[in-house]
């Protein structure tokens, strides 16, 4: 079941590559806008880099949340999934993982390149990538709740950002914090462990909450 839903969503993403690329380019553009707005002073950019990359990742991940369920809602396949004898939470987990593979992984892979633009040292680049690798699945999982709640609503796109962004704050703090800590030469393990803990907790609870939300939205 889990395999099938991931396989299906990846297949759909392959058929519609433009969706994946839009998210990635959005991420790149947002990150590239900052030097243009604050100036090319390298020291300043280096201190801001972890925050900028993380905020851009948050926004990019959020931007694609609308698609997580709405296409399936429009063509009726979501209805069919709700009627499946399989666990709906498992299904939502599959959809969130697929969302992460399609939107999160490209961000993780692109982050070191953007970090170089900001002249981040090698260690910091590695930590940035690891923190994104651990943190972006949490964004997809929490985002699934927001996407499920706003399904089919007018202005759903803006609404989902209102609902989801405040919940992203801890991830943002510890994600960017890990990179800053490594740049400052202090330990970053605690940050990464906490993001890992968030990941575990959201793996357990978010699919369940999102599944309940889907049932509410489709009733």
């Amino acid at each position: 079941m889990l395999i099938w839903i991931i396989k299906r969503d990846l297949l759909l993403a392959v058929r519609r590559q433009s969706d994946v690329l839009t998210t990635l380019f959005f991420f790149i553009i947002v990150v590239s806008l900052f030097p243009l707005s604050v100036g090319p002073e390298m020291n300043l950019l280096r201190t801001m880099a972890p925050g900028i990359v993380w905020v851009a990742a948050l926004l990019a991940s959020m931007l694609s949340l609308g698609r997580m369920f709405s296409n399936d809602y429009i063509d009726g396949t979501l209805e069919q999934m709700l009627l499946s004898p399989q666990s709906l939470s498992l299904l939502v987990l599959g959809k969130a993982l697929a969302h992460w593979l399609v939107t999160g992984i490209p961000l993780v892979l692109m982050a070191p390149v953007l970090g170089i633009q900001y002249d981040l040292p090698g260690d910091a680049l590695a930590i940035l990538t690891i923190s994104l690798l651990l943190g972006t699945p949490v964004l997809s999982l929490i985002g699934a709740i927001g996407a499920a709640l706003t399904l089919g609503l007018r202005g759903g796109g803006v609404l989902v950002s209102l609902l989801v962004l405040p919940l992203y704050i801890p991830i943002l703090i510890f994600g960017a914090g890990a990179v800053e800590a490594s740049m400052a030469g202090v330990g970053f393990d605690a940050h990464l462990s906490l993001i890992g803990a968030f990941l575990l907790v959201s793996l357990v609870f978010a699919p369940w909450a999102a599944a309940s939300s889907l049932k509410v939205s489709l009733e």
């Binding site: 709740i145 709640l149 706003t150 609503l153 007018r154 202005g155 759903g156 609404l159 209102l162 609902l163 405040p166 919940l167 801890p170 609870f205 909450a209 309940s212 939300s213 509410v216 939205s217 009733e219």
Partner: peptide
């Protein structure tokens, strides 16, 4: 977020339930 979600939903029953979920998620967070 809670108020906007409820305001965006026309069906009061759905608004109640959706609001409840986001309020609970919020309180945990």
């Amino acid at each position: 977020g809670f108020m906007s979600l409820q305001a965006a939903i026309d069906d009061p029953r759905r608004a109640d339930k959706a609001g409840a979920i986001i309020a609970l998620v919020g309180v945990v967070n």
